[in-house]
Structures are given as structure tokens and as C-alpha cells.
Simulated scan of single mutants.
Amino acid sequence: MPVLALALVLPLAACGNDDDGTATGEDAELTVLAAASLTDVFEQLATPFEEEHDATVTFSFGSSTDLAEQVADGAPGDVLATADETSMGLAEDAGVTGAVETFATNVLTIVVPKGNPAGIETLDDLAGATWVRCADEVPCGKVALAVLDANKITAEPASLEEDVRATLDKVVSGEADAGLVYATDAVAAADAVDAIEIPGAEDQITSYYTTTLEQSEDADLAADWVAWVTSEEGRAVLSDAGFGSP
């Protein structure tokens, strides 16, 4: 289903102000803090949402851990979406979340520059190559560690990146022979990279979580965004981007 056509199924929002003073309509603004691996698909999901709600969606993408710590400390925002349960737990423990929903899954893959100049075919080929992955403390780094350990890979990366998009960028720019990123990142950068499937990677599935935030200045609009992302139509967009079902 074309993305623009999906706007027809989004819940309607009235213009003006709600009784509680919450802004809606043409003045509505929504701030979504989301894992870096959601960059492309969330921007795609925003287009019909903005048209239907006469709203502007602003994103802050980055490490799930960093974003969760920020909202736990009271940073402004309406919606949080993380790439692991642990990060979402930081916000939950701080008491700033609404109901938490799982909305997608992902798996790790190897990406190499288009044409694979270093000839990397498996994780074993990372030995002696210039390769990168996410830092240990962020979700994509934790998954990478688990996958590497399961495959008894001891090769050391050339660098540890702050999030999965920074890892992908090192490969796209040619600074690295290979990188460990999510399958969806390989889809998003398909013109610049080739993806190499990791056997058994599905045993280390990444799950994505989303919730509204207590500090939201427009609770209704925030709830509408979560409903859109978790709807059948929203999940179809996620599926086209390479995400699995929760």
C-alpha cells in the first residue's frame, strides 16, 4: 500500500484546543526521541501523520540508552522509541512513561561497501580487516557482542561507534571494510552497501519498544503517534523497511 494512501486510515484529530488546553490542529507539534536505526522508517511514517493531523513531527535520533537517560532526567519530548528493553526500562524506572508497546524486531547483519572490495563473506573474514561496530553499552553493540561471542569471533574492531547509523556511515564512506549493523540499515543504504547475512543472527533478535512520555505537552497527539506506529498499516511500512513483527 503506498505510504500516502495510508493517511486515510489514521485517526482524525480536531483542530483548535482540547478542554485541557492541549494544542491540536495546525499548531500541533510532536517531538519523537527514537533509536538511530528507526531514522528512515520513522521519517517515512511521519509524512502521512503530519498531513492527517496538521502537525509537525520533530525527531531526535540517537543511541537508545542516551535518549532514555535524557527523558529519565526530564528532557522534553512526547514519545520515546528504543531498540531494546533495557533502555526503555531506564525511562520506566524514572516514572516518565505511559504504557509500553513492542512494535518491531530486527536482526544483525554484515555490511560492506558496494562490490565488497575486501572480499568479506563471513564473520571469520573480519580478522585482519578494518571493521566497525557499535559501542558495548548501546543496543546494537550489545547484540553485536552476543553474535560475535556465539560465533567465537575474537577479531577486534577498528572503532566503536556511538550508534548504528554512525557505524553504517563508516562503511558507506569507505573508511571501513565492513560493519555490523541491523538488517534494516542495510536496506536503507542498499545503493551504497552490500549485506551479508549472519547465520544464527535470528537467535539474537532486537525488539523495539515505544511509549508516550509524561512530560509530553500534547498527550493526545503522542498517543496518536504510538497508535499509528503500532497499527496494521504502520507495521506494513515497517515491514517494507525490513523490520520484523513483534
Rank of each mutant, 00 (worst) to 15 (best):
F49M: 01
E51M: 14
A55P: 15
A55V: 15
V57M: 11
T58V: 05
S60E: 04
G62M: 00
T65C: 07
D66V: 14
D66W: 11
L67V: 09
A68P: 07
E69Q: 12
E69K: 13
E69G: 15
V71I: 14
A72V: 10
G74R: 13
G74V: 08
P76H: 11
G77H: 13
G77W: 13
D78F: 08
A81S: 10
T82M: 10
T82A: 14
S87L: 13
M88S: 08
G89R: 00
L90E: 04
A91K: 01
G95S: 10
V96L: 03
G98E: 00
A99P: 09
A99E: 14
A99V: 12
V100D: 08
E101R: 14
N106L: 14
V107S: 15
V107Q: 12
T109Y: 08
T109D: 13
I110Q: 00
I110W: 00
I110K: 01
I110R: 01
I110V: 08
V111G: 09
V111R: 01
V111P: 06
V112D: 06
K114A: 13
G115I: 00
G115R: 06
G115H: 02
P117T: 06
G119F: 05
T122E: 03
L123W: 04
D124V: 07
L126F: 02
L126P: 01
T130D: 14
W131I: 00
V132T: 05
A135K: 11
A135Q: 10
V138A: 09
P139N: 12
P139M: 07
C140G: 11
L145T: 13
V147I: 09
L148Y: 14
L148S: 05
L148D: 08
D149F: 14
D149P: 11
A150W: 07
N151S: 15
I153F: 07
I153N: 02
I153C: 11
T154A: 12
E156P: 01
E156V: 13
S159Q: 10
V164I: 15
R165A: 07
A166C: 01
A166Q: 05
K170H: 06
G174R: 09
E175H: 00
E175I: 04
A176W: 00
A176M: 02
A176I: 04
D177K: 03
A178W: 07
A178P: 02
G179S: 06
L180R: 10
V181A: 07
Y182H: 14
T184M: 14
